[in-house]
Design a protein around this nucleic acid. Sequence first.
DNA 1: TTTTAATATGACCACCTGGTCATATTATGG
DNA 2: CCATAATATGACCAGGTGGTCATATTAAAA
Lengths: 219, 219
Amino acid sequence: MDTELTPRQTFFNLPPDKQQRVLEAAVQEFSERGYQQASINTIVSRLNIAKGSIYQYFDSKKSLFLFIFNQGIAMVRQMLKQVKKESQGEDFFTRVRKSLMAGVEFIDKHPALYRVYLRILFERDSPLREDFLQTIRLFSREYILSLLEEGQARGEVRKDLDPVLAVFILDAVLDKFLQNYALPYLDPALELNEKKGLEEKIDSIVTMLRQGFAAADGI
Amino acid sequence: MDTELTPRQTFFNLPPDKQQRVLEAAVQEFSERGYQQASINTIVSRLNIAKGSIYQYFDSKKSLFLFIFNQGIAMVRQMLKQVKKESQGEDFFTRVRKSLMAGVEFIDKHPALYRVYLRILFERDSPLREDFLQTIRLFSREYILSLLEEGQARGEVRKDLDPVLAVFILDAVLDKFLQNYALPYLDPALELNEKKGLEEKIDSIVTMLRQGFAAADGI
DNA sequence: TTTTAATATGACCACCTGGTCATATTATGG
DNA sequence: CCATAATATGACCAGGTGGTCATATTAAAA
């Protein structure tokens, strides 16, 4: 229970490229099998190192996992911060569109890392799972909320929307879109595995959210 | 590989209440631990029957799981069919609202079964997972699509919407809402664990989808 | 009651898991 | 070259898994 949550010094003494190889192999395994089913044996075997070695780097499977996941959270956080900064002053719906596209880009860069997140979402026994999810949820919601409030202040967004529910809808659509992008088999009809037409689909989705589903006169 | 996918005759010879007890215990275990981590040992131990017995009823863990999941799919299918029938002729947005409320009711009646579905969503190694998900996805999408098309024909829904993307948005919001209802810790701010105010929240969400996020003049 | 068929049982099997540790190998610095 | 510290190694451990099967128990038929 009182395992260290950070790698051991030995890990940091490793040549940087070996550090990276180790982390990549672990991310790969966690993304393929989830936390519980991920096998230390498989990881070390793929790395061609002895089993004992990985326990020189990390105290436990849990500690290895936590280090990876924390790194991932930090990366997402930084990414959102940058999108927000770069789009400052732009229209609300443009910012939503850009946030979605940034998410797509993130998954392109770190597909396995994103799949680890998807795994943990519904795996009851990942360590500190609820803490992690609340952390992610919290800053994801707060990010969207801040965009929304700026949009309302600028008069681009209806002011009578319940912020919690509006954020819920946006978050749901964004999150599901990225899930489908990462795992295209979830909804083959969307054809999100095809790069072509991706931006147009994002545009359409944001437009629908903007103007709603109800028929205006004569449409 | 060539295991039977149905229970053995012995299972059907069992008194109906024992059949149900066995299935309930299995659903419970699968919902708590997912497919791979679910333990036959735990199931038989909770049922106070010998391990060998459950292998008189089912050929394998896989066969037990498949039987349960197929049953669940059939139940959802029937539920949606009924909602569609009962709401025939009503306004599109009313039908969406009623579908969502039917989903909430379903989860109230079969919470563990719904959690099994959530587990399978992101567990790569559940048997026939992709087949199941495609089946579920397909009839879920087709259900929403049929409502949408009727709504467009009646002039209640914009006719310039891309059906695939419109269905995606509706499906995303409905699915996420039910996920959050089943697992309230996912987004505590929604307070979906409180029965009070649930209908109002559903109303608000449907209203937002209807009229969109963009500010009309003076709002 | 006797025979036969159906069902229940749990010790047992091979296999895999995360983790340990005494030992071997390599690097470092005097 | 030697001594010491750091790192790498893999046989080994206890504990869990899905699944089997000879045997015991119960039910049905004769």
